[in-house]
Design a binder for these strands. Sequence first.
DNA 1: GTGAAAGCGCTAACAG
DNA 2: CTGTTAGCGCTTTCAC
Lengths: 344, 344
Amino acid sequence: MGKKVTIYDLAEKLKVSPATVSRALNDHPSISRKTKERILSVAKELGYRTNKFAVNLSKQKSNTIGVIVPRLNSNFMSTVLAGIEKVANEIGYNLIISQSLESAEKEVLNAKTLYDSGVDALMVSLAYSTEDFDHLTAFTERKIPLLFFDRVSDLPNCPTILIDNRAAGYDATEHLIQQGCKNILHIAGSLKRNVYSERFEGYKNALGQYGLPFEKANLLEVTLDLSQVPEIVEHIKKSKSRIDGIFVANDTFAVHCMKELKKEGYRIPEDIKVIGFNNDPVSEVISPDLSTIDYPGYKMGVLAGQSIIGHLNGSINLQSANQITLRHSLIVRESTLNTENKTE
Amino acid sequence: MGKKVTIYDLAEKLKVSPATVSRALNDHPSISRKTKERILSVAKELGYRTNKFAVNLSKQKSNTIGVIVPRLNSNFMSTVLAGIEKVANEIGYNLIISQSLESAEKEVLNAKTLYDSGVDALMVSLAYSTEDFDHLTAFTERKIPLLFFDRVSDLPNCPTILIDNRAAGYDATEHLIQQGCKNILHIAGSLKRNVYSERFEGYKNALGQYGLPFEKANLLEVTLDLSQVPEIVEHIKKSKSRIDGIFVANDTFAVHCMKELKKEGYRIPEDIKVIGFNNDPVSEVISPDLSTIDYPGYKMGVLAGQSIIGHLNGSINLQSANQITLRHSLIVRESTLNTENKTE
DNA sequence: GTGAAAGCGCTAACAG
DNA sequence: CTGTTAGCGCTTTCAC
């Protein structure tokens, strides 16, 4: 592999113009089959490799998609990313991935960097603390496709892809109610984010629907950091009216609550039933295994990728903000088993 | 935010040359404090944003690091990536992440793409099926730093970062032996990859050290796909001499084996002891909780990032191929508890 | 301390 | 079907 072969080298060697070489290399229709072949063969022979820097500058695009996620290392997010990467990779786009670590400031910085890097599109799932979206409107103003997934915003004209969190929250809560729970605790993440606020709404709606009162004390808004598990359990122990069901906004946290509750002598599902969210691998490993809401992360990634690529190719009209809602589903396992017959 | 402000616009407005503007923007020493300030202020005022495409072309570098991993969506890998991203992000490098999906062909393709994209450095963790490394030598030939982590190669002059898999395999096996196991099964991944072959070696060494014979039938080389769990369990049930210990090359697989074994009536650790590898979150969730080897993934990512950046900055000599070995540690939990006193 | 000018390698409008 | 000619926006010698 030699050093730096350019289209000029090829042009010179073949006694044609650089333009012709460029066209041949890009399979331009108006180049004779013959010269195309000659050029291609010499290119291969000399080990020519196209210089993306030059292409990018000339075309003002980079064949690159930027992604900002709260964090890479959660099962759900890495699964989504795997889906995105797969489709991006297949059609030859590179993926620049950055994490906001749930910090709005970092999200802003990342957005700036990606903007300056000249990404052709941006996909984001918002940080906990993000409140305004100026760092993102810069993209839409420049007509750079901007897509939200999972943790979305209400920015106009931006495709979003998510599940119906309200319905999912409703389903989870309804299930607990149907299994006999009367006093259900809900453990939520930051209510600034749609995913948590809507799950909470679903929870409230279900309570209302079944004639159960919503107690303020039964909503715990936390960061879902595992270090908070003990205080949650403490809360449950101290609760005036006995809590007999918990709807947790994610499986990991749910599972660790279960562990702690079991240590404290609670029997699940006899004393207290638990349902999580996400269908994380841990939900199948805990004992009793955890009822949950299946969240199709990989599919979400794939669809997000396809959607953004559609916009990039102009095959979808960016103006008509479209929203894709994926189907979730309730997964019933042992942690919410109705044991009334046995325990009564 | 206006449209496309270039250094020429600034130059014109300020009656200076583009060169001066460029220097000022890059904080070049030979520009007077005064003009520097003027330029900077006008730049801000006009909303100037540097065009990376032009910079890249001019400098022939991209401020971008490529990463190829087998897959994004494993807890271990996403944790490593989180570490890499953190340090890359901090010093202003972008990360292009791609997955080989354990396929050598895809790895080759990804390498080509990243090469053409002009990444300044490449970090890779090899696919199962990769056998030769021509797709990677292209990088070293062009003096592009190439680093391996976790699944490494023996390519000369490439920094690698890993743990001592042989010692870790030894430790795991030794632990089982010390807990009274006499007939230990080892479930390995592709023995083409250092991580698995060396864990296997460690296993064999430990057996030898303790005077236990190594039975070929006790080595199972699998893809570690969960669909293989049933056949593993079948193997255990059918084994001539009763298997009393299993050393599994990763926790996820170990955990699912445990579930299946429990279903089949095996008591863990009484009938059979199990130890995994990675200290994956699931290892703490299964019951009995799983003994394992702690694998510092995040730290590995951080160090890998720092190492490659050191090379990029020239602060480390690329020629002196260095190898960083991280410390692993045995984590003893219930799944390997010696219950002899109780059961005898 | 600042300017002029030559690239960096490729693309694309316009001619022929 | 092919060549000419400007860019794309920034960096960087080499002068002054």
